[in-house]
Write a protein that binds this DNA or RNA. Structure first.
Length: 490
RNA sequence: CGGGGUGUAGCGUAGCCCGGUCAUCGCGUCUGCUUUGGGAGCAGAAGGUCGCAAGUUCGAAUCUUGCCACCCCGACCA
């Protein structure tokens, strides 16, 4: 166990909080609910951004930027949208400060009141659709496939670093299409991209599904999502993709003339993932020694720790290691050769474990004599002695193995913690133990809400890739055509 | 926003109930020497508006009030 880090079994949420701080990912800020993402944490986010951004571009999307401030009146144009977000909006009412006449400091200048108050975007549908109105006249203007990387603010009552902060970073895609089918296909395509990113890059298995009406995005006809299981058995929504129907087009009067000359409202989608993914990454893989990062997202993939006394020994080690570093870098493997002689090897070992560096190579004089190094992998903590000759290929393969193994471990954990539940008694017992409960549901909001009230479990999603299976609702006993996933969630 | 808890050096803490050489200890930091294959040892040193503000008092880390932040539990949510 790492120094000062609580274990997961002792206190899972404290383990998470401490790990975020000790691994140098982020810290709390002077403003309640906001976070400072530190360089090490931010570089993981940058890797996520890069991978996602490439995927968006490959599927024809372009980046753009829309403003932080939204006129208050925009928000109320789509009825369910305003209802969903009104309670958590930060509002700008003034545009100037002045010196406090009664003493030190500054006060809001009461004469500088805005005629129309601005809200800080909780999401950008409204500004974007008000703009799309100007961009769309003909079917030739469609589709519009835009993404933006931005910050948004939702004034949450209870915040947790990365998982739910008042301000967070994300990407939001906003597309406009001529037909319903095209928009639905887009919604589904982006969900697939999120799932692929989660599984291939984050090594995080996810369940693709649809949200129930209760959990749907405010203003959407349908919300698709990916749901992941954390090590405490709770669910975390890792990404959402919304089919907006014509709701925003109607609210903002976005129409186009089709080939036949008819004026029609356009069809929309929106989709997003946020810095919450950082929380998912941490909680899915890490252990009591610290972070465990999938190689594809690790800022440092390989750390080389020399074990030496004096400059001569270090020089001898460097002579062997410098060429290796060069080769690894040429293979796009990020490597750190830590020559710092202030910290001792044991300290470094623990430190890099805490930070989740996937592969550690230790080299001392003994190794130089035998032409070997000690290679330790973070995911299993196994150590092996490996010849220096061909080490680059060995490491390259090892990084792939680690990526695969971390995914498999998470998948096995999830498989072991999904339970088919057929009776209400079993439901009550299992929900206390944690995990996902696959159970029949009668399709009504009343039942869903009742279950939530009694157990704190919500329907995480109605899985997409699942076979129909006739059954009866675990709560009401009414007929049901398929199982849905219940869990307590972050 | 409601209930409970916490805030003392960079980090973790003792002291708070019962006001008065009580600002304690560990880690870290600095200096020197010895060390270096799993968070080094010895010797010496530096470092604190006791969360912030007001109040009570001859005297406040300690009592009172307000505010801020964090944690746990509710309501709400990506």
């Amino acid at each position: 166990m790492a120094k000062g880090l609580p274990t997961r079994s002792e206190n899972y949420s404290e383990w998470y909080n401490e790990l975020v701080k000790k691994a140098d990912l982020a810290e709390n800020s002077a403003v309640r609910g906001c976070m400072i993402i530190k360089p090490y944490g931010y570089s993981i986010w940058e890797k996520m951004q890069r991978a996602l951004d490439d995927m968006f571009k490959e599927t024809g999307h372009s980046n753009a930027y829309f403003p932080l401030f939204i006129p208050k009146s925009f928000l109320s144009k789509e009825a369910s949208h305003v209802e969903g977000f009104a309670k958590e909006c930060a509002v700008v009412t003034h545009y100037r400060l002045k010196n406090d006449p009664d003493g030190k400091g500054v006060i809001v200048d009461p004469e500088a009141k805005l005629e129309e108050e601005l809200i800080v975007r909780p999401t950008s549908e409204t500004v974007i659709w008000s703009t799309y109105k100007n961009w769309v006249q003909s079917y030739r203007d469609l589709p519009i496939l835009i993404n933006q990387w931005a910050n948004v603010v939702r004034w949450e009552m209870r915040t947790r670093i990365f998982l739910r902060t008042a301000e967070f970073l994300w990407q939001e895609g906003h597309t406009a299409h001529a037909t319903q089918k095209e928009a639905e296909d887009e919604t589904r395509q982006m969900l697939e991209i999120y799932a692929q990113f989660a599984e291939e890059w984050m090594a995080l298995p996810v369940i693709k599904g649809a949200k129930t009406a209760n959990e749907r995005f405010a203003g959407a006809e349908e919300t698709l999502c990916i749901e992941a299981m954390m090590q405490d058995g709770k669910a975390l929504q890792a990404g959402t993709s919304h089919f907006l129907g014509q709701n925003f087009a109607k609210a903002f009067d976005v129409k186009f003339q089709d080939k036949a000359g008819n004026l029609e409202h356009v069809w929309g989608t929106s989709w997003g993932v946020s810095t919450r993914l950082m929380g998912a990454l941490i909680m899915a893989h890490s252990d009591d020694n610290g972070l465990v990062l999938p190689p594809k997202l690790a800022p440092i993939q390989v750390v080389i720790v020399p074990i030496f006394k004096g400059d001569e020994q270090l020089d001898a080690i460097s002579e062997k290691i410098d060429p290796l570093v060069k080769v690894l870098k040429s293979k796009k493997i990020s490597v750190k050769f830590d020559k710092d002689d202030q910290a001792r090897p044991g300290w470094k070992f623990a430190e890099y474990e805490l930070k989740g560096v996937p592969v550690r190579v230790a080299v001392g004089m003994r190794d130089l004599e035998s032409g070997t190094v000690e290679v330790a992998r973070r995911d299993t903590l196994e150590k092996s002695v490996v010849p220096i000759e061909g080490l680059d290929a060995y490491i390259e393969q090892l990084l792939e193995d680690i990526q695969t193994n971390i995914y498999k471990k998470a998948l096995d954990f999830r498989t072991e913690n999904i339970f088919k539940i057929d009776t209400w008694d079993d439901f009550l017992v299992q929900i206390e133990k944690g995990g996902f409960l696959s159970a029949h549901w009668d399709g009504t909001s009343e039942t869903e809400e009742k279950i939530k009230e009694l157990t704190k479990a919500t329907i995480r999603c109605i899985p997409l890739d699942t076979e129909e299976e006739a059954g009866s609702c675990v709560f009401s006993g009414k007929p049901s055509a398929q199982r849905v996933v219940f869990a307590r969630a972050y």
